[in-house]
Every structure is written in C-alpha cells, then in structure tokens.
C-alpha cells in the first residue's frame, strides 16, 4: 500500500519507470505526490552499471497540464556502482501544454555522463487538485444544472468499506471537498467539488448506501474526458 504523508494525501507506491537494461545500467523508479500545495516527483536512481554516473539532468516533453521541473535535478554526489539515491523534484504547472494520449501521460528524458534516456510515466490526476477547490454552494448548484447530462459520467466503485464521514475526511485530505450531504431514502448523497491546476472544475455526486460496499460516483465536468482519471483517483484514495 502507499505511504501516508503528514498531510494525509495519498501517494501511489513507486514503480519502475526505466529498467536498468534499457538505460545502460541506470534504473529509475518513482511516483508523484502533492505535499503542502507543491507537486513533487519522487524519484529513485540506482546505478547497476560498473562505472560511476555523474552530470544528471532531467527534461519533460510538453504535456496536458504543463508539468515542468521547478528546479534543476540535483544529485548531491556522483552515483557509484550499486548506489541508490532518492530525490524529490518539485514540479510547476506553467510549462508548455500539449494534449497527450492518455491525458496523464508524461514523457521524460534523463541525461547522465553515459547517455540520454527516455521513458513515459502516468501521473494520478489528484496531484493536480488544488487546495482552494471548494466551490461556493450556490455556484455548485448553478453549475451542476448548467452542465448537460450528456457530460455526466457515472461509475461504480466496488468493495469500499467506509462510511460517508470517513469518505469525506479521506477525500478532503486529497483536496476533494464535500459541499453538501443529504440522506434520501437511506442513501447518503455527497456533493463534492475539486479544481485542477489549470482552473477546470469537477463536480461530483457520491452515493453511499449504508451496509453496501458499492458506491455510485457521478461526475460532471466541462471537459468530460477527465472523468475516467478522476475515477481512478477516487478508487486509489478510497481503497488505500
């Protein structure tokens, strides 16, 4: 399972992005996190070659949300054979934008003294959920009404054993804010909002039937292609 940070936001476990055999002995694994309003790329570099590695640098291809390193990649020392170094690279969202397929795809180039290597990684969209994503209740009601039902996506979230208060708390620590909660015929209906770094709002209705582990998530957004990535984030947060 993932590592809980002090803020309580969910971080996926690191996965291997670049195996050593594809990068002349350099292995890169990593994950993405949002901590105190800053997006970070947590990267582990392992030298599985027989020579020392120096002169590291990193560059991103343009991507859907303008993710870009906010500082140069700095490894404190050269990487000796069999050595591992962990780095947290702060990211900004003001880099060049180009819509990627899938939307959350990030193409990365890493250089060292041996060569330049390329890999792709998929970031969870919740790293883009900003801290001021709580929509005014009146605006929520108007926006919900305004977005046509064709733009509504509905999903089932299965095997989730949390009550609605636990769900609200868990989501809030990931910048998904519950604006209203209603109980209708025994079901809890949570109305929630979140906002992406590029200003796109996402409105959600989460139905929880007491005693049932299956939730219904309805999402309304003016950019409906985002919905499936929001679902992935809900599932990761609620099941970890």
């Amino acid at each position: 399972s993932g590592v809980g940070m002090p803020t309580g936001s969910y971080v996926l476990p690191k996965t291997v992005w670049l195996p050593a055999m594809k990068a002349k002995g350099l292995e890169i694994s990593g994950t993405f996190a949002r901590r105190m309003g800053t997006i970070q790329m947590d990267v582990t570099f392992t030298n599985k070659a027989m020579q020392i590695m120096t002169d590291f640098a990193i560059q991103f291809n343009r991507n859907s949300f303008g993710l870009s390193p906010a500082a140069p990649l700095q490894l404190a020392t050269p990487l000796s054979p069999n050595q591992t170094i962990e780095v947290s690279l702060p990211l900004s969202t003001v880099g060049p934008v180009m819509k990627m397929d899938p939307l959350n795809n990030l193409q990365v180039a890493v250089k060292n003294n041996i060569d330049v290597f390329y890999f792709s990684s998929l970031y969870p969209i919740n790293i883009l959920f900003v801290e001021d994503g709580k929509m005014e209740r009146q605006v929520f009601l108007a926006t919900w009404k305004d977005i046509p039902s064709d733009n509504e996506a509905q999903f089932q979230i299965k095997d989730c054993h949390l009550n609605s208060d636990a769900v609200s708390n868990k989501l809030q620590s990931n910048n998904i804010f519950t604006i209203a909660k209603r109980n209708v015929e025994g079901q809890d209906m949570l109305y929630q909002s979140m906002k992406l770094t590029n200003g796109i709002w996402i409105l959600a209705e989460l139905r929880i039937q007491p005693g049932s582990p299956n939730f219904t998530l309805s999402l309304k957004c003016r950019a409906p292609e985002i919905a499936q990535f929001v679902l992935q984030s809900y599932e990761a947060m609620l099941k970890n």
């Binding site: 209740r137 009146q138 009601l141 919900w144 209603r182 209708v184 209906m189 109305y191 209705e205």
Partner: peptide
C-alpha cells in the same frame, strides 16, 4: 454552518437525482 437558503436547494437536487 450558516443557513444561506441553499440547504433546501440541495435537498431538492438529491431528491430529484434519486427519483428522476
């Protein structure tokens, strides 16, 4: 929370979603 007159509106939304 301050009653801003929207409580009823959310109740209506929830009701309508449950019985479309």
């Amino acid at each position: 929370e301050i009653d801003d007159g929207l409580d009823e509106a959310f109740s209506r939304l929830a009701e309508s979603r449950n019985n479309p």
